[in-house]
């Protein structure tokens, strides 16, 4: 569960997040859509403890960001548009390193499990630089799931993927979403946002402009709301 209250993040004088209030319930898949520059990545990096909030509160699985950053990190798996992988290392070596950093038990079986899950078992000895963009992104998902975190943060995971790879990613995310993890995904792609989430929210101008359960709204109405909030 993620609870965000009155979150403000400013870089120098410029406020990127101007009071975000958002709750992602246990087991929920929430997609956050918004135009480029709306502060989606900033929000993700604050939740994942990479940058410190200027004001406001964030609680992740009951741990407060301000005093329990290390615990919060243990709860979170992040997939971003960057792979967070070492190019020179193989898939196995990458996962092995992260497994040690997260104190994952039974390292070798766990690595095999996640690699099979993302369909990369068989290529595990090859250096990451020889992978296609789609394969790298799948490995990034394996990396995020390695320590079996209750919460997944997906920051524009489909950036730079071709259609085939993006479809594969969608399937994978469907599966992930079905396993009762709490998921928060950002995207600037409305269609994918609507397709994957149980609930959708719009981030515009540094605030949550709109949020609703998917069952409560139809796609056309949502699109209208989106364009209004982005332009307004």
């Amino acid at each position: 569960m993620i609870e965000i209250r009155k979150l403000v993040k400013a870089f120098g004088n410029r406020a990127v997040l101007k009071g975000v209030d958002l709750t992602v319930a246990e087991g929920e898949f929430l997609t956050l859509v918004g135009p480029n520059g709306a502060g989606k990545t900033t929000l993700m990096s604050v939740i994942s403890t990479l940058s410190k909030p200027t004001a406001g509160q964030v609680r992740v699985s009951g741990y407060n960001l301000a005093d329990g950053a290390v615990e919060v990190r243990r709860q979170i798996g992040l997939v971003s548009h960057k792979t967070l992988l070492y190019d020179d290392l193989s898939a196995e070596q990458n996962l092995h390193f992260y497994a040690r950093m997260y104190d994952v038990p039974n390292v070798n079986t766990r690595i095999e499990t996640v690699l099979r899950r993302v369909g990369l078992w068989g290529r595990q000895r090859d250096p990451v630089r020889t992978y296609s963009r789609g394969m790298q992104q799948r490995l990034a998902i394996a990396r995020a799931m390695l320590h079996d975190p209750p919460i997944l943060l997906l920051d524009e995971p489909d950036t730079g993927l071709d259609q085939h790879a993006a479809a594969m990613l969608s399937n994978l995310l469907h599966e992930v979403g079905a396993t009762h993890r709490t998921v928060l995904m950002t995207t600037h792609n409305l269609e994918r946002g609507l397709e994957l989430g149980d609930r959708v929210a719009i981030l515009a101008g540094g605030r949550i402009a709109y949020q609703a359960d998917k069952s409560e709204l139809d796609a056309r109405q949502f699109r209208e709301v989106y364009y209004q909030s982005v332009e307004g």
Partner: peptide, 18 residues
């Protein structure tokens, strides 16, 4: 530079390590 190039720096900082 090796950490920065593919964002593995962030990966490192995300781990629950001091």
């Amino acid at each position: 530079i090796m950490e920065k190039d593919r964002g593995s720096m962030e990966g490192l900082l995300l781990t629950p390590v001091d």
